[in-house]
């Protein structure tokens, strides 16, 4: 099998390295040099996650769930992922669901990247009818599992944990293009992150300031115009209808972990922030279809409006 993208390319210790993995660009910064063993561990963690969960690779658990109803053993790291999806499925009244894969495939977002939407929309099967009996997912009908709304953020958390095990106490920033975890080094200034204007590349609508104290902080961004392949067709769907969302164009969320921030960044396309904040701890910025910028008063940073 081919060597995964993130494999170390040098035996030297480095404090910053970049690679391509799970279809996106990653950059890892550590406040001290890191040897090839730690970088190899990062690469292996990403490869394992992709192999286990990708809707775009054969042999993953997605294949089994697609093949038929039954008791499907999920990967060992499944618990937190199922948990955040369960919460957001409930808080969005069913609009957000990991069972939405079939709806995405109907619109052409499939393993072959055909990107040819079939007519109409296909609602997702009811995630509420699926039972989670760890480590088994008990399904009553076949469907296409898609953990794209939270999986990447969760993987960023997992990569940060791998690094913290190898270089305890180090300042670490893991940036997977839109999903970022920052654990500040001692005495380090806050990490300033530009919130890219969804309609004007090269411009920012604000800057988030992550001090990280006392532990990790995560910032996740989502934009529906990032992956639009036909008029009004993008990757954030309302699972109840299978149709792409229209009201919000871009979201940014700061939370203690990227799993939550990533999932909420998607949920903000589907439900009001106040509803989500009833159960989840996060701060937010949204840019809606009319061009209005909104944010929670406690968002760490500044907005240009």
């Amino acid at each position: 099998m081919a060597t995964p993208g993130p494999a170390p390319t040098t035996d030297d210790d480095v404090s910053s390295w970049s690679f391509e993995a799970i279809g996106t660009s990653w950059t890892v910064d550590v406040d001290r040099p890191v040897g090839p063993a730690a970088r190899r561990a990062v690469a292996d963690r990403i490869e394992a996650f992709d192999r286990d969960w990708s809707r775009f690779r054969s042999g993953s658990v997605v294949d089994a769930v697609r093949a038929g109803a039954g008791r499907h053993r999920l990967p060992d790291d499944a618990g937190p992922l199922v948990e955040v999806y369960d919460a957001l499925h409930r808080l969005t009244a069913g609009a957000m669901s990991p069972a939405v894969g079939g709806s995405l495939e109907h619109l052409g977002y499939d393993a072959a990247y055909s990107l040819r939407p079939a007519p109409g929309h296909v609602p997702a099967p009811d995630w509420g009818a699926v039972r989670w009996e760890p480590p088994y997912l008990v399904t009553g009908e076949p469907f296409v599992l898609d953990v794209g709304a939270a999986g990447k953020g969760y993987l960023v958390d997992l990569v940060a944990e791998v690094l913290e095990q190898h270089v305890a106490g180090a300042g670490v920033t893991v940036d997977a293009s839109g999903d970022l975890v920052h654990r500040p080094g001692q005495g380090a200034p806050p990490l300033r992150v530009a919130l890219e204007h969804p309609r004007r590349p090269g411009y920012a609508v604000g800057v988030a300031s992550l001090d990280g104290a006392p532990g990790r902080r995560a910032l996740c961004a989502s934009a529906t115009n990032r992956r639009t392949w036909a008029d009004g067709v993008h990757h954030v769907l309302d699972a109840r209808t299978g149709a792409p969302t229209t009201d919000v164009l871009a979201t940014w969320v700061v939370a203690d972990d990227a799993r939550t921030a990533d999932a909420v960044a998607t949920a903000l396309f589907l439900a009001p922030p106040e509803t989500l904040r009833r159960e989840l701890d996060f701060t937010w910025v949204t840019y809606d279809a009319l061009g209005a910028l909104r944010a929670s008063p406690d968002f760490p940073g500044e907005l240009f409006r």
Partner: peptide, 18 residues
Amino acid sequence: VGQKIDGLSVSKVAGSSL
């Protein structure tokens, strides 16, 4: 509205280069 990212003192950019 917005400001040029080039002119901001930031380490990272979060969003969608599109």
